[in-house]
Amino acid sequence: MDRSLQNAHAKLMSRDIHRLTPSPTEANCFSTVGTIISRDMTPMFLKFSVDDGTGCVTCILWLNQLTSPYYNRFNSSTILLHSRTARRQARDIRIGAVARVRGRVGLYREVMQITTTNVIIERDPNAEILHWLECVRLGRSCYRIQG
């Protein structure tokens, strides 16, 4: 992957996320902004839903970095950093908050969901509408999304 695109996320609205076709070979990095409408925490993960007015998308924030075999390939300081970051983000995710969610979009039980890499609670009251406007602009000029 081109290093300049490593942290790039395509901005989409929930309805467009649900229209995606999953691809196991591409890096499906996307972001959306919306209001958190549900929250279900387990010791392994935090599952929450974001509603942006066009629909809802389920998001998963994994919290098991210290016990997951996936993280065995990283050094212990990286695992600890991921764990602390995930737990801090999970603490900030509250129903009613507006959040910017970034991550990989994939299919789980026949429904698209975001496996989050980053969740930012928005403080700007205009964040959601600005995201909408940017999605419309990008949809027309870059993504070839109609509607």
Rank of each mutant, 00 (worst) to 15 (best):
R3N: 03
C29F: 13
Y71W: 15
A127C: 04
Q65V: 01
T54L: 11
I79P: 00
L63E: 01
Q113M: 12
G103D: 01
T54N: 10
L81K: 13
G103E: 10
I120D: 05
R3E: 08
C135P: 03
A86R: 06
V33A: 04
L80N: 05
T116H: 02
L63Y: 01
T54V: 15
P125D: 00
G55A: 04
S23A: 09
M41F: 05
D92L: 13
Y143K: 08
G147C: 03
F48S: 03
E26D: 07
C142T: 07
L46M: 10
I114D: 01
I129R: 02
Y108R: 14
T116N: 02
G53S: 06
L138R: 09
V101G: 02
V50A: 12
V105T: 12
I93N: 00
L46A: 08
N72R: 14
G53F: 09
N126T: 07
R94C: 01
V57T: 08
G34C: 07
S83G: 03
G139A: 04
L61K: 10
T85V: 15
D124R: 13
M13F: 07
A86K: 04
I17H: 02
Y70M: 09
T117S: 11
C59F: 08
V33Y: 07
L107G: 00
N75I: 02
T32A: 06
P69S: 07
P69I: 01
L12D: 01
S83D: 13
M41H: 07
V50W: 05
N7F: 14
S77K: 12
V50Q: 03
I114V: 11
L138S: 07
P22D: 08
V111M: 13
C29N: 14
R91P: 00
G34E: 04
M112C: 04
D52R: 03
D16A: 12
D40W: 12
H9W: 08
E122D: 03
T32R: 12
S38T: 15
R140M: 13
M44A: 14
D2C: 06
T21K: 15
I60T: 14
L12E: 04
G96V: 12
D124N: 14
I37C: 13
Q6E: 10
D92E: 09
Q65L: 05
Q146R: 14
V111T: 11
G96I: 13
G106N: 05
K47F: 05
T58C: 07
N28A: 15
N7I: 09
C135G: 03
W62D: 02
L61Y: 04
L12Q: 02
H18I: 14
R102P: 00
S49K: 15
H82I: 05
T117E: 10
R140F: 11
T25Q: 12
Q89C: 05
I95P: 00
R94H: 08
G106W: 06
L130M: 11
T115Q: 08
T21S: 12
W132Q: 01
V119I: 14
G55S: 06
S77W: 00
I129T: 10
Q89L: 04
M1R: 11
Y70A: 05
P125G: 01
L81F: 08
G106A: 08
A97R: 15
A27Y: 11
